[in-house]
Structure formats: structure tokens, C-alpha cells
Design a protein around this nucleic acid. Sequence first.
DNA 1: GATAACTACCCACTGCTACCCATAATCTAT
DNA 2: ATAGATTATGGGTAGCAGTGGGTAGTTATC
Lengths: 154, 154
Amino acid sequence: MTINNNTFTGEYSYTLDVKGRINIPAKFRNDLTDDNEKSFVITKGMDSCIWVYPIIVWQNIEDELKKLSSLSNINRSFVRNTVRYASMVKYDKQGRIAITPKLIKYANLGKEALIIGMVNKIEIWDPGLLAKTDELSQKIDSSQFDELANKIIL
Amino acid sequence: MTINNNTFTGEYSYTLDVKGRINIPAKFRNDLTDDNEKSFVITKGMDSCIWVYPIIVWQNIEDELKKLSSLSNINRSFVRNTVRYASMVKYDKQGRIAITPKLIKYANLGKEALIIGMVNKIEIWDPGLLAKTDELSQKIDSSQFDELANKIIL
DNA sequence: GATAACTACCCACTGCTACCCATAATCTAT
DNA sequence: ATAGATTATGGGTAGCAGTGGGTAGTTATC
């Protein structure tokens, strides 16, 4: 049973093997609807992590992008930095996806990796980098943080 | 008989077994509506405790989180921190849920644990930590309670 | 066209967890 | 008061999840 379809929560620790493969947590695979055909789109995240989208979620993003004018600055840079590196991956019988060397390098991944559910997508992090990023963001935006928390969390 | 659906009150003392399982009080289970399918979402609380939400309550939180665009830095770190420790748990035939080692460590749980109804969610505490937190909050200026009094009639 | 490199797919091992059963204590109804 | 039901806790186990490694078939290179 799942909370919501194609929706991911929780943090898991997994190992990246010498072939560049990493396991997608069984929970996440179960949350994935069948029309995704066991496939994700992996790409560069906006922090130093890898973003993993279910393909039908990614399709929505592409549709939205098509509607946006290229005159928009933010749109151009999002397309350039994110979409550019996107590639489709299907997980194997053991539930693993292969990560391209470019993305492994970008996310500074070693043997240990953290996989985090981010509601509509998944993030893959180097543990050290995530800790550092966390620390930074909490120092900077605590007031905006509280504002969001008051709005959303019961 | 229940007062309100998915609404929890009262304090109960339970034991965490060696497998990290803890009983959800029978009264709370009875208060849980069927559409939750015997499932909760457990996550880090704001004090050093564990928050336990009925699934349908958590779904509202997820829906709100989905509306936040990942283009914004603050949104990304907020979603990450909110969802990172959240996982769905279903209670077994005996009415127990399994608590992840990470959360046990965070809440500093030993064998004894207090389970407290917090209206729309449940809190799990180490008894010593709760006592200490209680003591601290008693010292807080009573003017803050006066402020609350303007919002809620008891 | 021969060889090297790579990738997709397959198999194997280990440890854990979800599920089951057992038992004692407590509650409930007649 | 007593029998039956429910609740709280402990423990065993089959099956699966996570990980490593092998190989055949495909693509790239010279």
C-alpha cells in the first residue's frame, strides 16, 4: 500500500557499486505506477545532487516547459542546466538503475549514497555534501522556513 | 465510542521491544478511520520526539508540499527537511508499528516510551526527555499562553 | 574484420523484515 | 464471579531486499 502514487518520502542509505549502479529503495519502486514501466528520468539537480523523476512526472514538466516562452530567463537556464543532462533509465531485476559517470562526478558520489524522497521526485546525495548543504540553508533562511512551516505543517 | 475521528488524546506508557516495535494504544487505533488502512506516517517531531500522523492527514501535507516549486532554494530545503525522515508504517496484527533506528536515536528512546495524543497527531517520547521539556516550557512567560487564549476557547 | 570495451541481463549469497503464532495480563459482559 | 474477548509483549521463520559478480551479445576502435 502506498500513500500517494509516484510520491516519495524518507531517507535511505545505499551503496553505489563499481559498475555505477545503485538500488532504488523497494518502497519507492512500489510507489511507482505501472505506466512508468519501471523507468525514471535522471538528471542534474539544482543542488549538488541527482534528481530522479518518474517518467510520467517528467513528461508533465516537459509539457510545462513547452508552454513557457524562451524569453523567460529562468526557463532558459532551467532547460540548459537540467533538461540537458536528462536521460531515461529502467531499473533491473534487482531494482537498480545505472548512473552515468557525468552525474556521478557532478554529485561527487563515492561508495556511500543517500537517497531521499522529495515528494514528486527522488534525490541522490553524497552524505557529506548533503550535511554541508543542510547546515548552510538552515543558517540562511530560518525565518522563511518558519513561515512555510506555519502554512503547511499541522 | 470515539469523540472525533482521527483525533487523539491521553497519555500511555508502552515498551519498545528489541526489534524496534511499539504498540499503538488500542484507543488510538479505534479512533483511526478505516480509510487510513491501519497506517500512519512517522517522522521527526520539532522537539526531540517522534510524530505519528494518520495517513489521510499526512496526505494533505504532501499535497501542499507538491505545490512548492523546486526552483526556489528555500522550498527545496524545506521539503527535504520535512519529508526526509517520514515513512509510512502499518500496524501489525498485534497493533504495533516498527520505528526506524534513525528515529529511535533521534528521540533517544530506550525500553520505556510515552505515547501522547496531540489531537490530530500522536507523539512518542522518552519519559525523561519529556519531563525535562515540560519543565522548560513551564518557565516560559505566561503571556504566551494569554496570546493563545485569544485564539482558542477552552 | 579482429579485438577491445561496454552494457544489459542473469545468478548467487546474506541479512533483515514482514508476517505468523504463543502467552500472559487486562477488560467486559452476563 | 467467571468465562470469553481483547490487549500487550515476546519470539520464530519464510521470503524478499540489497549487494556482488559473471557472461553473452552489442557497439566501438583500429
